[in-house]
Each structure stands twice: as C-alpha cells, then as structure tokens.
C-alpha cells in the first residue's frame, strides 16, 4: 500500500552544510502489518513519518501509494489516500482547534473525507467513541477541558472515524502518563485486530513499540541499523546500537536488577 523505494531526505543547513536526515531506505507497509520504528531524536524517524504522509518530498528515491508518488497526489486520489492513511501525533493540544468542541473535530474528517451528512457523521462519531470507551458526554467539551489522556483518545477517534487501512502513530503515547499509556496502547491493538488495518508505530520508547509491533525497524543517525522480527531484535540484537539500547532497558527492568 505504501512503499518507500530508496527514499532519502537531505536538508541544506545554514553555511551550506548538507544534513542527511534520512539515508536511502526501503520499506513496504501493507494493511495488517504492524511495524514499529524505534529511534532517538535525530535518528530520522520523524523525517520518515513526514515522507510517508507526503508532507515532504524525498530528495532521492520515492514514496509510493498504489504506484503514485505520495507528495504528488491530487483530487480523488488524494482523498483516497487521506481515507486510507491516518496519523495520530504526539502533541494533541496543538492539533485541535481550541475554540471548537471535540465532537466537531472528530466529525470533520467524516464530513470532508467520507462525504457524510451531519446526521450520519454524528452517528459515526458516537460509534467510534463507543469503540474507544470514551464517555460521549465529553465530546461537547473543548480540547482544554479534558485531560491529556482523554484528548489523545479524541485524536485517535478522529483518525479512526474514516476507517483507515494504515494508521501511523508518531510518538502517540510518549506524552501520556504510564497509567494512560497502557490503555491507549490497548486501544491501538484492538483497532488493528478488529479492522485488519496496518499500524506504523513510531516511538523512542522500546517497550511500547515492541508491544504493538510484529516487525521492528531500528533507526540511528538517519540509517536503519537493524530490522527484523520483534523478539529477535529485542532478545538477540545484531547491531551494537540496538544492543546498547536493549541493555539500557534491561538495566531498568525488574527481572534484571533483581537478578543482579
């Protein structure tokens, strides 16, 4: 569905230095896939997300959506792309219009992308909120009047209402409290199982990413340093960077420190 073919991105910094944000990368994402992309800040994972969504054009190679260059889509093809590929970002405060109700925000893609009537869209909003176990009473509130965890659920509802076939989660739980993270991760997992959609889960947190993914891609300094089956990458890392990363988590986790 989305294919990256040797896609790379360079920026020209000040003083004409070239910053290699992302070195050539191949990646295929189909509905049903669960791909976790791990990397620290500056590893190139955010650049990759922007490329996958067509928000930026690759400097080399291509990002294809059904054989069409993503950043060149227009008209019906673009509508189809928006329907198929949705994003849940990290900073939910700034992604909502502060003066409109949350219901309004969730309803909008149903009106604009699916072309539903207001009554149909409202029914769809209720349905998606119910599937996420969100109190429908909250939907009349404004973004600033609910907790961060609730707001994130509305961001998810806004993405899920168009029944995307691929959901891209960019640091979607990083800003949430641990107690809320778990619930939101469960919701992503439920959605993927229920709908058969694909998930691209991008995060610097390994445990949450590993929980949601079948396949892990480890990025470092703009390169993919390792990718493979989740248990292989976590338990038998090949690249020194991955090994260091997993070692750091082991150090902080229960089993290891009690053994030590």
């Amino acid at each position: 569905m989305i294919t990256a073919k040797a896609a790379a991105k360079q920026y020209r910094g000040r003083d004409n230095t070239v910053v290699h944000a992302l070195n050539p990368l191949d990646l295929v994402i189909e509905p049903g896939d669960r791909v976790g992309i791990i990397g620290e800040s500056g590893s190139g994972k955010s650049t990759l997300v922007r490329l996958l969504l067509g928000l930026e054009t690759p400097s080399a190679g291509s990002i294809l959506y059904q054989d069409g260059e993503v950043s060149q889509l227009s008209g019906d093809r673009l509508r189809q792309f928006r329907r198929d590929v949705q994003l849940v970002g990290q900073d939910t405060t700034s992604s909502f219009d502060p003066l409109r109700s949350l219901r309004d925000a969730v309803r909008r893609p149903a009106l604009e992308i699916l072309g539903l009537t207001v009554a149909e869209a409202d029914a769809a909003v209720d349905e998606v909120l119910a599937s996420l176990a969100v109190d429908p009473e909250l939907s009349s509130r404004r973004p600033s009047q609910v907790s961060g965890g609730q707001r994130q659920r509305f961001a998810i509802a806004r993405a899920l209402i168009v029944s995307p076939r691929i959901l891209i989660c960019d640091e979607s739980v990083s800003a949430l409290d641990v107690s809320v993270q778990g619930a939101v991760l469960n919701e992503f997992k439920d959605f993927a199982e229920r709908s058969g959609a694909g998930i691209v889960f991008v995060s610097h947190g390994v445990p949450a990413t590993a929980f949601l993914s079948d396949r892990l891609v480890v990025m470092h300094g703009g390169d993919v340093v390792e990718q493979g089956d989740v248990s292989q990458v976590v338990n038998r890392p090949k690249h020194p960077y991955t090994a260091r990363l997993m070692g750091a988590y082991r150090k902080l986790s229960a089993d290891e420190s009690s053994a030590a």
Binding site: Q181, G182, A210, V234, M246, R250, S253
Partner: peptide, 10 residues
C-alpha cells in the same frame, strides 16, 4: 501497567 520487554506476547 507499564509495558516491559519481558512481556512481548501479552
């Protein structure tokens, strides 16, 4: 509730 690397298959 915190995810950990020890419970991948949960």
């Amino acid at each position: 509730c915190a995810p950990s690397l020890g419970q991948l298959n949960d």
